[in-house]
């Protein structure tokens, strides 16, 4: 491919991005510390001012997902406060300091009804004085997610929607869909548990390349773990008789 053609393609890609309002004018960047993961995003930067969707199906996965989200939020919240809207909250605030967050910087809004949760998330996303909005709910229809996306396009707030055991994993207008699962930690031969480690699956990302990575949270930042050669050692089935 000749170089002028590549330029044209790059130019067009940028135009498409600006049409989709993903490209930002400001130099605000989220340094996730995960170069490998950032390659999956358009423009190689983590999309801020957008709504990210996380899906988890088990309590263990939900904890891992919240851990990963908190790792991201910890970067954002340095510049402000976050609002956590949920209907069934189990988060334990003292644990947030592990992710570099002052738990008092997070304002929790605990509601019962799904509709109220959505309303509160939308209102919070419209408020540009907030650094991040975390919403925990199970169902999110396309229309509802579109509303949230429109809200952040105005305010440039970053939203994380954590859907715990949704009935169906329907299409949404969110910029990405993540699935986080816990992985066995590595204590480097020492007894006991190591740093939290997750399997981060980026299932969908607008204008990017989905992928799967293994990530560890240690020393207050994410660390990419080179994927080990997976050797599936299945336990031999015991033969009858």
């Amino acid at each position: 491919m000749s170089s002028p053609k590549q330029d044209i393609i790059l130019q067009l890609q940028k135009e498409v991005l600006s049409m989709q309002r993903l490209k930002k004018g400001s130099a605000q960047n989220l340094n996730t510390g995960l170069w490998e993961v950032e390659q999956a995003f358009p423009d190689h930067t983590f999309p801020l001012g957008a709504v990210h969707e996380f899906i988890s199906n088990a309590s263990e996965d939900a904890a891992a997902t919240n851990g990963f989200m908190m790792g991201l939020t910890g970067q954002l919240i340095k510049k402000g406060t976050a609002i956590w809207v949920s209907s069934k909250r189990t988060i334990f605030p003292p644990a947030l300091s592990l992710f570099g967050i002052d738990p008092e910087r997070i304002i929790f809004v605990d509601l019962w009804r799904q509709k109220e949760v959505l309303w509160a998330i939308e209102e919070a996303l419209k408020c540009d004085a907030i650094a991040a909005v975390i919403g925990e709910l199970s169902e999110l229809s396309f229309t509802e997610s579109r509303r949230l996306q429109l809200a952040v396009e105005q305010s440039r707030v970053t939203g994380f929607i954590h859907r715990y055991s949704p009935r169906i994993e329907n299409v949404t207008a969110c910029v990405s869909r993540w699935k986080i699962k816990p992985l066995a930690s590595n204590a480097n031969g020492l007894p006991g548990m190591g740093f939290p480690r997750w399997n981060v699956q980026l299932q969908k990302v607008r204008n990017g390349k989905p992928g799967e990575w293994q990530v560890e949270w240690s020393g207050g930042q994410f660390r990419y773990i080179a994927r080990p050669v997976i050797s599936i050692t299945e336990t031999p089935k015991r033969k009858a008789g």
Binding site: D128, A129, I130
Partner: peptide, 16 residues
């Protein structure tokens, strides 16, 4: 709160 540029505590208070 050390708000990000442009934002302020009043806006958060009003949201709440």
């Amino acid at each position: 709160w050390n708000f990000k540029e442009g934002g302020n505590g009043t806006a958060v208070g009003e949201l709440l």
